[in-house]
């Protein structure tokens, strides 16, 4: 089973790598053709038409196909490993990186399907690839669980919601980066600023409740395992900071009407906090120090 798992992992790594190549290739091709990637490039969404003579081959369809394969193989890999170890992907950094990559690819595909634009995917997929390559360098052999981690249900849920939240926030990051490049709508082959802004907002609308669950399930587990729901453990604290940043984004937007650049910067900061939280166990020790 572990053998199968590493087999699928390799297949997923290959697919994701190819997917990233295709996305980058497509971006280059679009630049070259100065074509319109999506209708909605200019300021008024309804008035734009794809540039004549250029058939954007399916808004990164090949890239998306490879991403679908990546998700498929990664799912098989996670399931295979879960069957072999009897628990969810939460016992070491390898497992968590794979789970995170899964979340990013799934979110990428959902947003690409929903918005029919591959532009943000071209930023988000390299993030997924980075997590996979990082996982490849890590010790992957499953280790037996120490007593505190023998709480399979809660921890699997905890990591599953983290997977979704972080994956979706990667999209928020991608759209924020593109928004900053596209603020004035000057790049014809990118989606309009308004669409990018909306993608960022939607990523938070989806991700924030999940992020809340990450915190609460973690607290619930801590209460069961140690008898205190919150102990200002470094990873807990930085998760809280991440959560506050996204909470701040929502409030700034809804109450103050923050749009565009300012909220894009918040999204980038938020994702930086996500990465910091994820790498956190390397910077400090604490309850989450399972490296």
């Amino acid at each position: 089973m572990v053998k199968m798992e590493s087999f699928f992992f390799m297949a997923a790594l290959l697919s994701t790598g190819l997917s990233v190549l295709f996305y980058l290739w497509q971006v280059a091709a679009l630049r070259w053709h100065r074509a319109v990637l999506v209708a909605g490039a200019a300021s008024d969404a309804a008035s734009t038409v794809p540039a004549a003579g250029y058939r954007p081959w399916g808004s990164g369809r090949f890239a998306a196909m490879m991403a679908v394969n990546g998700l498929l193989f990664l799912s098989l890999s996670i399931i295979g490993r879960g069957v072999a170890t009897g628990h969810g992907p939460f016992s070491n950094m390898y497992e968590f990186s794979v789970a995170l990559a899964w979340g990013v690819i799934a979110a990428t595909l959902y947003f690409q399907w929903h918005y029919r634009t591959a532009a943000v995917s071209a930023v988000a997929m390299p993030v997924a690839l980075a997590f996979l390559v990082y996982a490849y360098t890590l010790p992957s052999r499953p280790l037996p669980l120490v007593p505190a981690l023998q709480q399979s249900l809660l921890l699997t849920l905890h990591v599953a919601v983290a997977m979704i939240a972080y994956g979706v926030f990667a999209i928020g990051f991608g759209s924020a980066v593109l928004y900053l490049a596209q603020r004035r709508g000057s790049i014809p082959w990118l989606p309009s600023p308004a669409v990018l802004d909306d993608m960022g907002y939607r990523s938070v609308i989806i991700g924030f409740p999940f992020m809340t669950l990450v915190l609460l399930l973690g607290a619930l587990w801590a209460d069961v395992a140690w008898g205190r729901y919150w102990s200002w453990d470094p990873k807990e604290t930085s998760t809280l900071v991440t959560w506050l940043l996204y909470g701040g984004y929502v409030h700034a937007r809804v109450l103050r009407g923050w749009r565009g650049s300012r909220s894009a910067v918040l999204l980038i900061l938020g994702f930086a906090a996500v990465v910091f939280t994820y790498m956190g166990n390397y910077f400090f020790s604490g309850l989450h120090a399972y490296k």
Partner: peptide, 19 residues
Amino acid sequence: IGVPTERATRKGRAFGLRD
């Protein structure tokens, strides 16, 4: 429509059976 929604961008073909 006051704010562009994703529908405005949904001109491309979805992931079909062939894909």
